[in-house]
Amino acid sequence: MSHQPIISRRTFAGGTALAAAALALPALRAQTKLEKNKIALAVGGKAAFYYLPLTISEQLGYFKAEGLDVEISDFAGGARALQAVVGGSADVCSGAYEHTINLQSKNQMFQAFVLQGRAPQIAFGVSTKNMPNFKSVAELKGKKIGVSAPGSSTNMMANLVLSRAGLKPGDVSFIGVGTAAGALAALRSGQIDALSNTDPVMTMLEQKGEVKIISDTRTLKGTIDVFGGPMPAACLYAPTEFIQKNPNTCQALANAIVHGLKWLQTAGPGDIIKTVPESYLLGDRGLYLASFNKVRESISPDGIIPDDGVKTALKALASFDPAIKPDKIDLSKTYTNAFARRAKEKFKA
């Protein structure tokens, strides 16, 4: 199927602007030489709205415009993507901010440097097929709960919901189901009793009455209800040492993401459909767009990580993970807004 005719006037204008910018670029590039222009980036569940800004920046050529050649590897969930960076097969992770706190508690220093989402966009739902008479979270004891991948932020959200009902992570079985067609199939076939996952998956199940949503962070209000404050979600993070050695490269990455965030501020549903790969729609364009409208406000407008949000994240993690001691964590080392602020200024985001 050819995608030629779909090029909108806007993309075409953008293309000519890019060409003009490319002519002017050598002068700019001389001032800030990238320490590393080939970047291996790991992400867990790229088709989810959670990482929409990453996909937009990639598809619209914003990484290339910054002189970067970014190779994106997609894993089943954030915990797997993180392992790729820890193991050295990827340079940068597109993942949940709270991983930087977890890592610091294990004496591994990582830093988030540009925000994609200002709400986790995760919903927790119980299968109406397996548990039609569901009344309280306590009934999930001994049940199977689907998450994107064990140890990912979907797992963290499930742990939080369970802990508030007096259940420990060991009281249930967590099963990794990814964030796309596999998650839908696992719930529909009855393999799992509940699911903690992102959109578009959760909206698709909710609209068809297949799950009963019991906890929801797809909106800013829902996030405050669940976490007690703003909660930074998807971001780009990397080992602190990598950021110190490659400041211009990290600036270019932050620029590309903030450029994508700026585009998303005014993009209509039709623009999104034209830009994301067809497979992301999971076979239902209408429901995909319904999900987009639901999570739209949770996309960061400018890439800046909120200072009060990092405190919320620490409090949430410490509430169910005894290995995390809040007084031993230096939050100021888990994130920096230096790159995002410069990018925000550059693109007037």
Rank of each mutant, 00 (worst) to 15 (best):
G45I: 03
G45A: 02
K46P: 00
K46S: 10
A47D: 10
A48K: 03
A48N: 14
A48S: 15
F49M: 02
F49I: 02
F49P: 00
Y50P: 00
Y50S: 00
Y50L: 04
Y50N: 00
Y51L: 15
Y51Q: 03
L52I: 03
P53K: 00
P53Q: 04
P53D: 04
P53F: 06
P53L: 09
P53Y: 01
L54F: 05
L54W: 02
T55M: 11
I56Y: 01
I56G: 00
I56L: 03
S57M: 13
S57I: 08
Q59H: 09
Q59V: 09
Q59K: 14
L60C: 00
L60F: 03
G61N: 05
G61C: 09
F63D: 05
F63M: 05
F63W: 01
K64R: 12
K64F: 06
K64M: 12
A65M: 10
E66N: 12
G67F: 09
L68S: 06
L68Y: 05
L68Q: 09
L68T: 09
L68D: 08
D69Y: 04
V70C: 03
V70S: 06
E71G: 08
E71Y: 11
E71R: 13
E71K: 14
I72W: 09
I72L: 09
I72Q: 04
I72S: 01
I72R: 11
S73A: 14
S73R: 12
S73D: 09
S73C: 05
S73F: 10
D74F: 08
D74A: 06
F75M: 15
F75N: 14
A76T: 13
A76V: 15
A76C: 11
A76N: 11
A76Y: 08
G77Q: 14
G77I: 15
G77K: 14
G78Y: 07
G78T: 07
G78V: 10
R80S: 15
A81F: 07
A81V: 13
L82A: 05
L82P: 00
Q83P: 00
Q83M: 12
Q83Y: 09
Q83V: 07
A84W: 11
V85W: 01
V86K: 14
V86T: 13
V86F: 11
G87M: 10
G87P: 01
G87Y: 10
G87N: 05
G87T: 12
G88S: 07
S89K: 13
A90W: 08
A90P: 08
D91K: 07
V92C: 02
V92L: 06
C93N: 13
C93S: 13
S94Q: 03
G95H: 11
A96E: 10
